[in-house]
Design a protein around this nucleic acid. Structure first.
Lengths: 198, 198, 198, 198
DNA sequence: AATGAATGAGCCTTCATTCAT
DNA sequence: GATGAATGAAGGCTCATTCAT
């Protein structure tokens, strides 16, 4: 609205800051990114940053909130769909891979910089993550209860196993690899489903 | 031997420094650990640290080298054993879980701080990791070739899937969980083997 | 203008820093002067120094640039004057002595600390010095061409001879000597002119 | 004598240290040369250095003493020769140029690092320099007294003028210049003598 | 809404010197 | 004669944050 909060291309200052911070945090890590670099990349001054964000840490938390919100929404949609549980799980398991690849910056920040948050903020983020984990686990349990999935391994462990791999994508995924993100996602979902065969 | 290189409990200075650094890096991250804190924890002065290590970064690399060496040795032993391939893979897959839990500090440093290494050192570490990955992959491929494992998923992907989970153990493993490290390891190895069933 | 950039006596912070650095560099040498000492002498904090100067070395270069600019301006004025060449050379040769004595600090920094500059900056300073040397040499050559000065010695050598002495003034000049700066300057200019007699 | 004080090429340890220090001090300055670098260049260890020299500063003073001794001896020889005073002065003035060029390292150390000496050592070095200056001045005065040289400029000033140039040789002398050291020396001596013409 | 000068604490590293062996 | 591990003080520099404007 206010003329001064956007630049030529019309993106509001807070978004510009968030985008710059995301890219830089992923590129060189939270501690190695200076506030000065962020404001320069966003084309504003320090005063502006501290006008919109209380601290550098707040910026990090915003990055987290954004990605968590996105993933939770998508998971809820897949889980609530009207389809057999094995299909719903497969779709959800594949989707988290695709969206992780689409937001690889956020993902790498997430798992490398979470310990930089203050205890209380850390706690809040963990809570949100927990909710996400629970929803996914519920799907596995549903399948186990209905006999579609093996009960050899606890649902908790299965979920941690799958997410561990997904979270590590930022380490080993290569855009120039032989598979498209969607193909890769389907293969990983397939691995999960095969492991769950009774 | 030399009196000055050890303290009361007889541990040489370099080892003391390495142990202190490992603990602190895992506890609060590489960038958040000051050289001052390390030397205080080790009970020496800064000069002593720089007498043995060229830089703070060298200390980090030493931590990596040590854990990589250990894991490579163990993997080689399991892979070269005289047993059916599915047993060898199961043992290897379980063992890496147990040793990762035994050295959870090293593991969390590994995947959170590797990007702090200079390009040159990073490259060397990646090379050593690659060698480890290859050895493991060779096991999977052997099983696929001999028809014991499914070929639905490429061996590369299977290995990344398993190690992604293992490397993330430091995020989700809880010593007070319901399973002992060995039990947990067997369950994860089982998940892998089940996914590989033809 | 801004209240914070000056102190009680109204001198802006950058100037205060430059003045303090000049005095200290001359007093104890570049390497023996700590940034801490400079900011204390200027009555500011380290952060302020690094707000205005990129490094301690930049401070040194500023000192050089300032004195070089001053001397070049004066030389140009004398050389362009409307008078016989022997008078113009005499005036220029004497003036550089007087201004060197007036800025003895800068002079001693100049010839003792120039090798502390990075190659890049060193090159730039040498370039500026070269320009100064050339202008002076042109005067000598003009006199040689018109038969006023002897051609027994190359103009280049004559200039180096004179400036060598001038640059060393900080080593042997004593304010309590028998001659005033102006008298000393005239005697040295006279030595030069006498050496140039045909 | 002792077997251990020399290495393969038979140069005693103290000399090796002195040679290494001279080269390094000239190359990068006194403060920027570490004791570690000196002992490495000399092929010995720190303990050895501190066995022969009390401190890093002692090493610097030794460099000074050596060059001063050499120049004083040569000046005395030229001044005491049996020849007209203008010839003796010309020879001495030229010789100091040649020996300065031959020992450019020592010369540049001398005038860039003298202020690094402690007050008492500094005083001693200045005293030796003073003796050298006096001997040279006596030659000029002798010529002035006997009417061979002009008395327009005091002998003191003439000597400072000449030595200023000579000491600055390390700044502007280039081995690949158009003149050999001897030719350059003769030209500079000529400049001095021409300036002294009655 | 935004600026940018200034702070002050902290960081990694260097180094001359000592001393038990 | 000579070693080299260890000290302890200092050095240059960075940076998140504040605040008068």
């Amino acid at each position: 609205m206010a003329a001064r909060t956007t630049d030529g291309n019309g993106v509001p200052v807070p978004q510009r800051l968030l985008a710059a911070a995301t890219r830089l945090f992923a590129e060189r890590g939270y501690d190695r990114t200076s506030v000065q670099e962020i404001v320069e990349a966003a084309g504003v001054t320090k005063g502006a940053l501290y006008h919109y964000f209380g601290s550098k840490e707040d910026l990090l938390q915003e990055v987290y909130s954004r990605v968590l919100r996105l993933q939770q929404e998508r998971l809820d949609a897949f889980a609530d769909a009207d389809a057999p549980v094995e299909e719903r799980l497969r779709e959800a398991a594949a989707d988290v891979v695709v969206t992780t690849i689409d937001n690889l910056d956020d993902a790498s920040i997430f798992f490398r910089s979470m310990h930089h948050l203050s205890p209380e903020k850390n706690k809040q983020v963990r809570l949100e993550r927990r909710r996400y984990h629970e929803r996914f686990r519920a799907l596995v349990e549903e399948g186990q209860r209905t006999g579609v999935f093996s009960t050899a391994t606890s649902a908790d462990l299965v979920v941690d196993y799958h997410f561990g791999s997904v979270h590590h994508l930022s380490t080993w995924y290569r855009p120039d690899g032989p598979l498209t993100p969607r193909e890769l996602a389907e293969q990983l979902a397939d691995l999960l489903l095969r492991a769950l065969r009774p």
